[in-house]
């Protein structure tokens, strides 16, 4: 089953967002795009060229941008507020909490350059806590697509959904392996393979790493059920429970702190509904550093061999 996921080409997930936002601009005149002096990094150039009157650069003032986006919904606009994940979450947490989440505003927070794979800019910019912060907020939906095609589909899907959404994507060019015209359903997990021995749940850049790991494990006779969990909240609990009921063990993989992210979300379901051995592949309570994306994933133990090791460890605990 995994054989179908060939790496056609490498593309950045942020460009999937940029492509979708330009499409949405053409389809819906209520779509407004805001940024905080990062239009190029967010791949907004096409949207800006085609819909200059619906683009607002707020300068380097993310708090104000978040408030403006909340206000724009009054009157029926559909604002997409964009920045780096670091500046669109931790820096403006209270503004998101009060003006968007608590106020129930239909704002889409679209964050690029999430995680370690931002690379050389280092730890000040490499947020690894954003999924945790955002999923704690009532009313907030959290979506973490895995490649260019899925980011494009997810961007289009969140436009169709009423309410606040945090969409997380990244900077580096990574394998683009999902289908170009896929249907993205918020809150629905996608089974990339069916297996008997272990459930592997991944999101974002870690999904392709998990495919690589599952192939290596298959060559050793270990059968992996791989779930692409692109919606962290609301979590597809049924998918997790059904799979773990069958395999009896679970590993999660994410480009995030071990606290607060996908692993915690899955662990809560497992602990409550179907206790089973579990391992988490994530960054272990430390800040990142400058380096190339591949080097950082290796050093911080969120790489393919780390997933393989975690699977073997969890199988030994069964």
């Amino acid at each position: 089953m995994l054989d179908q996921y060939q790496m056609y080409e490498k593309k950045d997930t942020r460009s999937g967002f940029g492509a979708a936002i330009a499409e949405l601009g053409a389809e819906n005149e209520k779509v407004i795009v805001l940024t905080a002096d990062l239009a190029g990094s967010l791949k907004l150039n096409d949207f800006i060229a085609r819909f200059p009157d619906r683009f607002y650069d707020c300068g380097i003032a993310e708090a104000n941008m978040v408030g403006i986006a909340a206000g724009m919904t009054i009157g029926g606009m559909l604002p997409f507020a964009t920045s780096f994940a670091n500046f669109l979450t931790g820096r403006v947490y209270d503004q998101i909490r009060q003006s968007i989440a608590y106020s129930g505003k239909n704002v889409k927070l679209c964050a690029s350059h999430a995680g370690l794979t931002l690379g050389e800019d280092g730890a000040t910019h490499q947020i690894l806590e954003d999924i945790g912060m955002m999923r704690m907020l009532p009313n907030m939906t959290v979506v973490v697509p895995c490649d260019y095609n899925q980011t494009r589909a997810a961007t289009r899907a969140i436009a169709r959904t009423e309410g606040p959404v945090y969409l997380r994507f990244g900077r580096p060019k990574v394998p683009n392996f999902t289908k170009p015209d896929q249907a993205f359903v918020i809150g629905k997990a996608e089974f990339l393979s069916h297996g008997e021995d272990v459930t592997l749940v991944a999101c974002g850049h870690m999904v392709y790493k998990s495919i690589e790991a599952a192939r290596l494990l298959a060559s050793e006779g270990i059968s992996v059920e791989l779930i692409n969990m692109a919606t962290i909240k609301p979590l597809d609990e049924k998918a997790v429970i059904d799979s773990v009921s069958k395999t009896g063990s679970v590993v999660t993989a994410e480009e995030h702190q071990i606290n607060g992210g996908l692993g915690d979300a899955v662990a809560a379901v497992i602990a409550r509904e179907h206790p089973a051995p579990m391992e988490m592949v994530a960054v272990h309570d430390r800040f990142g550093e400058s380096g190339k994306p591949d080097e950082l994933m290796r050093k911080y133990h969120i790489d393919t061999p780390d997933i393989v090791r975690a699977v073997k460890k969890v199988l030994a605990r069964k």
Binding site: I32, Y56, A63, N64, M65, V66, G67, I68, A69, A70, G71, M72, T73, I74, G75, G76, M77, P79, D94, Q95, R97, Q98, S99, Y102, S103, G104, K105
Partner: peptide, 30 residues
């Protein structure tokens, strides 16, 4: 708050300093 659906209120406020941004956004929407 808007959470309790009291007529007349369009955004939560209390944590200070956020209202002018929201008003600017609503003015843009107009």
């Amino acid at each position: 708050t808007t959470a309790e659906h009291l007529p007349g209120i369009r955004v939560a406020s209390g944590s200070l300093g956020q209202g002018l941004s929201v008003a600017v956004g609503a003015a843009i929407s107009k």
